[in-house]
């Protein structure tokens, strides 16, 4: 089942008097449970595609469908609700809220919108996520007391807090050393297998691209290659 569908999506950014075509016409289908890597050099349009899927930017032309819902005509309020309900985000720079500790940062998305869990359920779920990402001993520490890898683990846990259908990760390992980065990707893969959450991440690191089941290569705003590998329960 296609959880994300892009139809002839184009994105043009005005840059002073000229226009920049970031995306020149992309058709894309992503299945539920996919672990997909959007690869390409800087300026290829990876982040732009992720922004479209993440409903934090709108295409200039074409349509984006999330779980069968077309986002083209949606107003800000609807898009915000859609993001909250279906999407989780992991940013390159972690983007944790500096004044909240690990537990509170992970809890934050659960406090927006309608309460879908009671207090006990919420606490248990957050504790589970903290354990899954291996930060049980850091639960009351603030982001400025954590390492880069630990911060990104918090971001992963936060992204999963609302049990989204899709997690979008934009260059999640860019600010991490290679070993830590690999660990982060392995964690994401593990959660993908266990939760069946669709992971879509952008990267220009070839080592990490190879871990993904489905790879889309972008160049100059167009898809130049698409690879699907057999999804199995083990590691690569």
């Amino acid at each position: 089942m296609d959880i994300v569908k892009l139809n002839e999506v184009k994105k043009v950014y005005p840059l002073g008097k000229v226009s920049v075509e970031a995306i020149k016409g992309i058709d894309l289908c992503i299945e539920k449970g996919d672990f997909i890597s959007i690869a390409g050099p800087s300026g290829s349009g990876k982040t732009t595609i992720l922004n479209m899927i993440g409903c934090i930017d709108k295409p200039t032309e074409g349509t984006v469908e999330i779980s069968g819902r077309c986002t083209a005509e949606m107003k800000d309020k609807e898009l915000t609700s859609l993001r909250h309900e279906f999407l989780g985000f992991i940013f390159q720079s972690f983007n944790l809220i500096p004044v909240l500790n690990v537990y509170e940062n992970i809890e934050f998305p659960l406090l927006l919108g309608k309460d879908r869990m009671d207090k006990k359920e919420k606490r248990e779920w957050i504790d589970y996520l903290i354990d899954e990402v291996g930060l049980a001993e850091q639960r009351i520490q603030r982001p400025n007391e954590l390492s880069g890898g630990q911060r990104q683990r918090v971001a992963i846990a936060r992204a999963l807090a609302t049990k989204p259908e899709i997690v979008l990760a934009d260059e999640p390992t860019a600010n991490l050393d290679s070993k830590t980065g690999e660990g982060i990707i392995e964690l994401m893969k593990k959660l993908n297998r266990e939760q069946s959450t669709t992971f879509i991440f952008s990267t220009h690191d070839p080592a990490i691209v190879s871990i993904a089941d489905h790879v889309i290569h972008l160049h100059d705003g167009l898809v130049v290659e698409e690879q699907r590998r057999q999804r199995n329960a083990g590691s690569r």
Binding site: G54, I56, D76, T80, S81, R83, N95
Partner: peptide
């Protein structure tokens, strides 16, 4: 921006 991305309304 992060709060808004995570689903915080205006």
């Amino acid at each position: 921006g992060t709060m808004r991305a995570l689903g915080a309304q205006k």
